[in-house]
């Protein structure tokens, strides 16, 4: 018998938000009946761009149902931007954890959310990236690599628990081990001491990060941002467009812009808004 937390049991026995939202803004279907679980996620936004309503339909085990129920509860009230930052670990944590063998349910939840947001943003269905490694469950090398990085996976068994890859005939076990070796090798190289950056380099990297990682998301909500100056660890920015008049802009700066810049440029920086 699986050891489910009380919260998993509660969300399974009393699922929240079952069904489909009428005329949804975002829709996604992931999984398949052959694979043993599938999830249809729909959401609708209110006038302020926040998720007003989210519903799910799940075919799958108790933890798949509980995960979908939890996900709909989590994203209600969030902006699309906020929702897009939810990871599979966040979903599992919301439920007080999932058995290792069931972590793939949380990954399926994250996939559905991502796909529904992409649908809302009008991003065309991405062509299948990478190539299928696990034929039984149709899992690609990209998906496996991502699960390894995001969840710090170290063994074949863990990869199977999180992605289902390798859980069928077993023919792909060697390929999964190769991906593991490669990605783990890369990951171990990362935490080398960062060389001290010149201000010019900092500015260039911040500009780049804003352009590639931050601006596209803000533009979805009609907003924009500009780098004004960098003084030591202080990154001074100005908001533009919808952000300039948005009550939640400060939160976006702290929870999204700052988080992204800390992750990709240097970890000690502080983002501050300046009015011009």
């Amino acid at each position: 018998m699986w050891e489910y937390t009380d919260k998993v049991k509660d969300h399974f026995l009393n699922p929240r938000n079952v069904g489909e939202v009428d005329s949804p803004d975002g829709v996604a279907e992931v999984g398949s009946i052959a694979c043993g679980d599938a999830l249809k996620l729909t959401f609708k936004l209110d006038g302020e761009g926040k998720i007003k309503e989210a519903k799910f339909k799940t075919f799958g085990c108790a933890s798949a149902i509980a995960t979908a129920s939890a996900l709909t509860e989590m994203i209600k009230g969030m902006t699309v931007e906020e929702a897009s930052r939810i990871t599979n670990q966040d979903i599992a944590a919301f439920l007080g954890g999932l058995p290792q063998e069931k972590m793939h349910c949380s990954v399926m939840g994250r996939e559905a959310l991502e796909k529904a947001i992409a649908h809302y943003r009008g991003e065309s269905e991405k062509a299948v990236e990478g190539h299928v490694v696990c034929e039984c469950f149709g899992v690609t090398d990209i998906e496996i690599e991502r699960a390894i990085r995001e969840n710090n996976l170290a063994s074949l068994e863990e990869v199977t628990n999180y992605t289902k890859a390798g859980g069928g005939c077993g023919n792909c076990h060697d390929s999964i081990r190769e991906i593991l070796d490669r990605v783990r090798g890369d990951m171990e190289k990362v935490p080398v001491a960062r060389p001290k950056m010149s201000n010019l380099k900092k500015i260039r990297m911040i500009e780049e990060t804003i352009e590639q990682e931050i601006r596209p998301s803000l533009k979805q909500d009609g907003g924009d941002i500009e780098l004004v100056d960098v003084i030591g660890n202080r990154v001074l920015v100005a908001t533009r467009g919808a952000c300039a008049s948005c009550q939640a802009a400060n939160q976006t700066l702290k929870n999204f812009v700052e988080v992204k810049l800390r992750e990709l440029v240097w970890p000690e920086l502080v983002v501050e808004e300046v009015t011009q």
Binding site: G36, D37, F59, G60, C61, C136, F137, K164, G167, G168
Partner: peptide, 29 residues
């Protein structure tokens, strides 16, 4: 429908049975 959900809901009523579903076999198939 999927077997594990059926088993756990029956468990709420004290009914004990088994399933051949993937989720209960521990093998994903």
């Amino acid at each position: 429908v999927e077997g594990e959900g059926i088993l756990l809901m029956m468990d709420e009523f004290g009914i004990c049975a088994s399933s051949g579903s993937a989720c209960t076999s521990g093998s994903l198939q």
